[in-house]
Design a protein around this nucleic acid. Structure first.
Lengths: 326, 326
DNA sequence: CTCCTGTGTGCATACGTATAACCAGCTTAG
DNA sequence: CTAAGCTGGTTATACGTATGCACACAGGAG
């Protein structure tokens, strides 16, 4: 390639990256030669030389959850304004997160979304100085950059809404206590009920993994305790519950009010019109991206761990209302 | 690192990759030193030396379509049995597909899913000898590896089913004619109607992009022509139509039968129970992966273009039935 | 004892780019 | 007219791994 343009290899490198020290004539000659040869600079050589790959990973374990899809989509949008590419990394079959794949030099940074509370990954990455940000979920142990919604407060909003409407037999379908979202939304909802002096007897709550089928199954169990309202710790659980109740002929919200959490796109569909606690996904992803980018550029200086907490808002749709009379 | 283990750099390389020519003692020493130092071999150096990155791209333009999500999920599963990683590549804001990103050496191969009929990408990649496979959609111009479902036949199945039930005022919501799926499903459905001597007057068909909102809007337009059945060229369109009709109080299938195409997971949900033409996504992804892997290993010899066509099947659920009397 | 063979490791080099350092030729100031 | 600066390039080198090849050493055969 350098030979074809009649210049040295470094000149090719500078010409194609627009180094201003080159003369316009030379650059033009190189660019034309490159086009004629269909030459594309090797990212392999470039990575090695610059010690950076221009790639950022998003670590997700649950691609089946539309919430993470929207996050992924939004992150892709955010990164498209940068020269960075997005790599999707998923834990392998054993559930272990790909530590080695993150630190093998093929990535400049990462956004971790489905981290579990006892994950060792953040600590290991921090120790190694690898830039990363936790999104949506956080961990207790390692101090690191985090971007989350105020889950506790969001769940309290839901509880307050149901209580305000006069519900007293309120059921709750919580998420796994191994996740910060599961734990905090449960604590918030219980706190909200507690403020109104309400209990949560065993037959009125369950914990389930954040999955559609699990939501459907647990909802049917809870239904036997005859609640007038059901809070679900995320929209997938709520949509599973919606489907299960729909299948049983239970009318929503006339017989049972239903509130979810996340406000995924599906929640707004006409057939669902799910009342839910909304997270500002673009805002969350934008903030996380900013955190990551600043950390990636400040590689030298030890930046202190930063924490961005967004405010949840309640989206009133059509799956909640006052309890049925009697 | 080599110094820490008291051996040369090539020995470290061989030890960590399990080269059998090394003595067990040396290997053990190196591995222990590597663990102590938290040493992870640089993928950057490795890529340059081996002229391969271990990364495969999946090119998708529409992450909002759950069909591609399932493809992505399935591909991830298929690749997890290989040493390959999956990179998600999306066209930029201008819609141009990232040719340079594919051939800059950071990828060993690609699976192209949302290719449009007039795309120049397959030809360009073929010419360059870059291994890739078209999945779900195909192009006319360039001969290359392809894995698709028999879209023509699938759409005929839908037409035959509706005709068999006695429908005569059948509406159709087709996809963009810039895609092979849009074109072939339209041709198949028209052919199916034609076999029964049925016409498709202008007020009974539309073309729309494969998007939820577009499906909803077009369905409402078509509704004015009072059809007793509606075929949609994919499930997203069908779900959009379902929602729109649901919003208008139209009962499905009592007043209007609805049939989709793809059989995404959502289609099986209780609230939808969408009758649809099913594609075997795991089979399709598996076949595409095989095509790609063989092409990636046979880098030298010019492999002839191969074409895998899967059979669609009809999934009878609850959105279709006989036309209303009168 | 010598020669040969096989085993295990080091040495030299290649991969393709980026970048520091250097240098030729021209311009400009003194 | 010369020294100093500027412009626009070249040369040399580094990045971290893989791999062909040379080579030391041990063991066995002749």
């Amino acid at each position: 390639m350098a030979r074809a343009a009649g210049v040295s290899q470094p000149t090719v490198s500078r010409a194609l990256r627009g180094d201003p020290r080159l003369s316009e004539a030379t650059r033009k000659r190189v660019v034309e030669a490159a086009e004629a040869l269909q030459y594309v600079p090797s990212q392999r050589g470039r990575s090695l030389a610059t010690r950076s790959s221009g790639q950022v990973a998003i670590v997700v374990s649950d691609l089946g959850n539309p919430f993470y899809l929207q996050v992924l989509d939004e992150l892709h949008r955010a990164l498209s304004e940068t020269p960075l590419r997005m790599l999707v990394l998923t834990p392998d079959a054993h559930g272990s997160v790909p530590f080695e794949r993150l630190v093998d030099g093929s990535l400049d940074g990462a956004i971790l979304t489905t981290t579990v509370l006892d994950s060792q990954l953040p600590a290991a990455l921090s120790e190694r100085g690898f830039p990363f940000v936790l999104l949506n979920r956080e961990v207790d142990a390692a101090p690191c950059d985090v971007c989350v919604v105020d889950n506790h407060r969001g769940a309290m909003l839901a509880a307050a809404e149901l209580i305000g409407l006069g519900h007293t037999r309120i059921a709750a379908l919580f998420g796994p206590s191994t996740t910060s979202t599961g734990r905090d939304r449960e604590a918030g909802f219980r706190a909200g009920l507690g403020q109104a002096g309400l209990e949560l007897p065993d037959q009125l709550w369950r914990r389930a993994p954040f999955q559609f089928d699990a939501g459907a199954a647990a909802a049917l169990e809870l239904l036997e305790a005859r609640p007038t309202a059901l809070f679900c710790a995320n929209d997938i659980l709520a949509l599973g519950a919606f489907n299960a109740l729909h299948g049983r002929g239970v009318r929503i919200p006339e017989q049972v009010s239903l509130i979810g959490f996340d406000d995924v796109l599906l929640a707004g569909w006409d057939v669902f019109q799910l009342t839910t606690i909304s997270q500002d996904i673009p805002g969350m992803v934008g903030a996380a991206t900013n955190l990551l980018l600043t950390r990636m550029t400040n590689e030298g200086d030890p930046l202190p761990p930063r924490r961005v907490v967004l405010e949840p808002t309640m989206v009133h749709r059509r799956t909640h209302g006052p309890p049925p009379p009697g």
